[in-house]
Design a protein around this nucleic acid. Structure first.
Length: 157
DNA sequence: GCCAACGTTGGC
DNA sequence: GCCAACGTTGGC
């Protein structure tokens, strides 16, 4: 099983927004970066778990868990000129972008902040804590996954 | 195919 | 809001 980290700006789409949706499920749409897309398209599998990370906010942090419940399929929001993430180069005949479906699993009572992760030498290999990191979807090793859950101090069902 | 210009990300 | 880092674009 794979482990991932998904970034979202809470002003745009927070973990509470996901929780409030029907079935607590949403499309992870709007990814317009090739590396992030390739992770989704080629490696993300149904049943994989992902950290939900709040970026570009007062306290950047991992705030909860989600599960991948549908593997990559065409991101149709790229086709619609009215959509914020419209991409004129991605038409239905040549789709360029994909999305997956994720379902809310858990919201942490104690978030794991970027600051805490940066301070932990065991997480120094994580791309998230490295300078200039802009990747919005990244794989997490099983060791890092466990370590972060330990930092959070909650048992995970 | 190089690389300067530009736009975006995201921590602070 | 600032700005460094990075990815993408497009002229040549």
């Amino acid at each position: 099983m794979g482990y991932w980290l998904l970034k979202s700006e809470p002003d745009t789409f927070s973990i509470d927004d996901l929780y409030s949706l029907p079935n607590r499920t949403d499309h992870w749409d709007g990814i317009r970066n090739y590396q992030a897309r390739n992770f989704m398209r080629d490696e993300m599998k149904k049943g994989d778990l992902a950290f939900f990370y709040h970026s570009n906010c007062a306290e950047p942090a991992i705030v909860g868990l989600v599960e991948v419940i549908k593997e990559a399929y065409v991101d149709h929001t790229a086709f619609d000129p009215d959509e914020y993430y419209f991409d004129a180069k991605s038409g239905p005949e040549r789709p360029r972008w994909v999305m997956v479906d994720v379902k809310f699993k858990q919201k942490f009572r104690n978030v794991v902040t970027l600051k805490d992760m940066k301070a932990n030498p065991l997480l120094s290999e994580m791309r998230l804590v490295q300078k200039g990191n802009r990747l919005s979807i990244m794989p997490i090793s099983s060791g890092e996954w466990i370590k972060i859950l330990e930092m959070n101090g909650e048992s995970v069902s």
